[in-house]
Amino acid sequence: MRDDPRQLLLPGAEPDPEADAVKRLFAPARLTQARLVSGLTKAALAERVGVSAAAVGQFEAGVTRPRAEQLQRLSEELGFPVTFFTAGRPHEHMDASMAHFKSLRSTRVGERARAVAYVEQVWELTHALQKHVDLPEVDLPPTQTEPISAARALRGHWEIPPGPFAHLVRTMEVHGVVAMWLPVSKEESARIEAFSTSKLSRPLVVLTPDRADDVYRHRFAAAHELGHLLLHQDVAPGDMQQEKEADAFAAELLTPRDEIRADIGNRVRLGDLADIGRRWGVAMKSLIKRTQELGLVSEATARRHYQRHAQLVSAGLLQPEPVSGYPGELPSLLTQALSLAEQHDFSMRQLADELKWPLPHLRKLLGEQGSRPRLRLV
């Protein structure tokens, strides 16, 4: 590895005076965050920059500070301006132990760390927007320990009428929960799955692209994470029992047992479940499980229904519906907040400059735009 600063610049280039100033105010946590968001290990970044992996580790630990020339190369390789690495801006540290990851065993450590780094940045984005727009207050009922009671309490607290729970994600945002798309590949997000955290100043639910082609799976994932926010605020994440409780919460929230039992009736026909599932906004496979939970069918009958369901899917007779066709299920709180700010002379470019992010990165974190909660200027 090369540590000679003269080898860190293009021929004829001179150190940037701005980088020389930034090195005195260098924030180690910013380097870690930018590296994780970029999906790079310390060794990979070191190779690109021309220093040792130990040197990158020392930069991130605050043992040493990068020289101006090294800051320029870090900026170029990580895609953030040099000023991004300056201390003094609001920052909320988070690690994987602060989030409810469903697939801890199948998720790579680096992928979890990258996802958490994105969450840190969404917190910063939310904090920045709150200076200009009054976001909805967080409005969740008190924490409960029993999933069924918690789901019923939430429906009552939010005054959800009997019947299907329409516009789940939009309703979450209206009540102050930030929802976001995780801006990673579909393959990577399939290993991570949706996750959530209540350890920041505002609860946050992360939804993943692997569910975007099936609105029913997407809705159940959102309801599952909402369950974690209500049931497991003060519990260390990672317990499989917590995942079962969050599933039970989601099932009751989306298909309250007394109402869905009455809708299905005593004679459970597979064809009827498809229509009922569309009406309630849940997957047919979820309804098969629900009929067994409610004692409407035997284990053997449920197994036959699962087999028939798999045959219908394999034959292409059951096609998933993408979430893009359901605006009420698309995260939109932050894009709505920015849109309102833009109406009052605060542009996306100004927001990017305030965050010290490149504009394309801000656009990526804002994600898709859908129906929006009502907001007002501060």
Rank of each mutant, 00 (worst) to 15 (best):
T197A: 10
G163D: 05
H91S: 13
A113E: 13
Q33F: 03
R267H: 07
H228I: 08
A27Y: 11
L294C: 04
T41E: 06
L340P: 05
E342T: 02
L231I: 15
T32L: 14
A251C: 01
L71C: 04
L104D: 13
L362F: 08
S106E: 12
P183W: 02
Q7C: 13
E321A: 09
Q130L: 06
H100R: 12
P15G: 11
E124F: 07
V133E: 04
V313N: 06
H344K: 11
V49P: 08
A19E: 00
L377Y: 03
L230S: 06
P209Q: 05
L40P: 05
A19F: 09
G79S: 09
A151Y: 01
F346Y: 15
A166I: 03
R65Q: 14
A128K: 14
E69D: 11
S339F: 11
M172S: 07
L273D: 06
L338V: 00
T83N: 06
D263W: 11
E188Y: 08
G325F: 12
V206P: 02
V184Q: 14
E111V: 00
A19V: 08
L207I: 00
G295V: 07
A153H: 01
R202Q: 02
V297W: 00
L10H: 09
A34S: 07
I192L: 13
Q307D: 15
R65A: 15
A54I: 06
K199Y: 06
F84Y: 15
P17N: 05
F195S: 04
A212I: 09
R219P: 04
M98F: 14
L9D: 03
M348V: 09
Q33W: 11
V215H: 08
Q33D: 11
Q369T: 14
Y326A: 10
A34W: 03
E69H: 12
I260V: 11
A53H: 08
E259L: 15
G227E: 00
L78M: 04
A128R: 11
R363K: 15
Q7N: 14
I192A: 12
V138M: 03
A34T: 09
P164C: 10
E92P: 01
N266G: 12
F59K: 05
H93G: 12
H361S: 13
A43Q: 12
L168C: 07
G238M: 10
A19Q: 04
H132E: 14
R308A: 13
L104A: 13
P161F: 00
P237S: 08
H305Y: 12
V282M: 04
P147E: 01
E193N: 14
M180V: 09
D95W: 05
E69I: 04
L25G: 12
R308D: 12
L333H: 12
P136C: 10
K102A: 15
A302C: 10
P161Q: 08
M348E: 14
L10N: 04
L287W: 01
A151I: 10
V56E: 06
F85I: 05
R170G: 10
R191Y: 13
S103K: 13
I264Q: 01
